[in-house]
């Protein structure tokens, strides 16, 4: 995809996203653009670099010791997520690194709960079920998702998507920000078994997204379009 220059509107939107002033639908639109448009993503990053020296003017204050203890507990079992393949695609897919948490947070209908108390290390019991509700940037389309981690079974509700020759491709975006394709899904409800290798990404806080893609060449390495549906994965 050639890097086309940004329109003035998108240039403003990138600055506003970096500044943090957006909310609601505007923020969702900006976050979706950041996922799908490398030029936009690069401009957001450029703005973050321009503004970051200002953060040096904020007064420092020491956090309590519980913060480090919780960090240490959480990273102890986090190593599995880091792979060289992940890092490579992270670089290929510019700008995605900072987005996975952000995009879900920007959408009004997404199920988002407060972070669990830091003393609780998030190891879901084997019987837990993960749910997500994917919603469109305009708040129109909604898709319910349920996941059984024991069987790796993912159930998708029906959703009406704008008719097009392309078909919905489902992505899981764990905290490292790199989208992994779960393949093409049916829009009228679907059930699929997630590959063993992908199951480690189906964790609390990961983001699910659907983009409309060419079915013949799926699964793809990275999305080619703005997600039509996005939601956050929550273990309940």
């Amino acid at each position: 995809m050639p890097d086309l220059p940004l329109s003035p509107e998108h240039g403003s939107l990138a600055a506003e996203l970096a500044l943090g002033v957006l909310e609601g639908a505007d923020r969702a639109e900006a976050l979706c653009l950041k996922l799908s448009n490398p030029t936009f993503a690069a401009e957001v990053e450029a703005w973050r670099r321009r503004l970051s020296p200002l953060l040096g003017t904020v007064a420092a204050m020491p956090p309590s010791a519980r913060v480090w203890n919780a960090v240490e507990a959480r990273i102890g079992d986090g190593k599995a997520v880091r792979s060289s393949a992940g890092l490579r695609s992270l670089r290929l897919w510019r700008g995605g690194a900072l987005v996975s948490g952000a995009i879900a947070a920007g959408l009004a209908l997404v199920l988002v709960t407060r972070q669990p108390a830091p003393s609780v290390v998030a190891v879901p019991p084997a019987t837990s079920v993960a749910v997500s509700q994917l919603s469109g940037a305009d708040g129109g389309a909604i898709m319910a998702v349920a996941y059984d981690p024991q069987k790796g079974l993912l159930r998708l509700g029906a959703v009406s998507l704008q008719g097009s020759a392309k078909r919905p491709e489902l992505w899981i975006i764990p905290e490292d920000g790199v989208p992994r394709s779960l393949g093409i899904v049916r829009a009228d409800g679907d059930e699929l078994t997630v590959d063993e290798g992908m199951r480690r990404f189906m964790s609390d806080g990961a983001t699910l997204a659907i983009t409309m893609e060419d079915a013949a060449s799926a699964p793809h390495k990275a999305p080619s379009a703005t997600p039509v549906l996005v939601g956050k994965f929550s273990i309940i």
Partner: peptide, 15 residues
């Protein structure tokens, strides 16, 4: 802020 900071260092670790 402490909860956020905890997430921040986990992100730093991963990135």
């Amino acid at each position: 802020a402490e909860d956020i900071l905890q997430d921040v260092y986990v992100k730093i670790w991963r990135r």
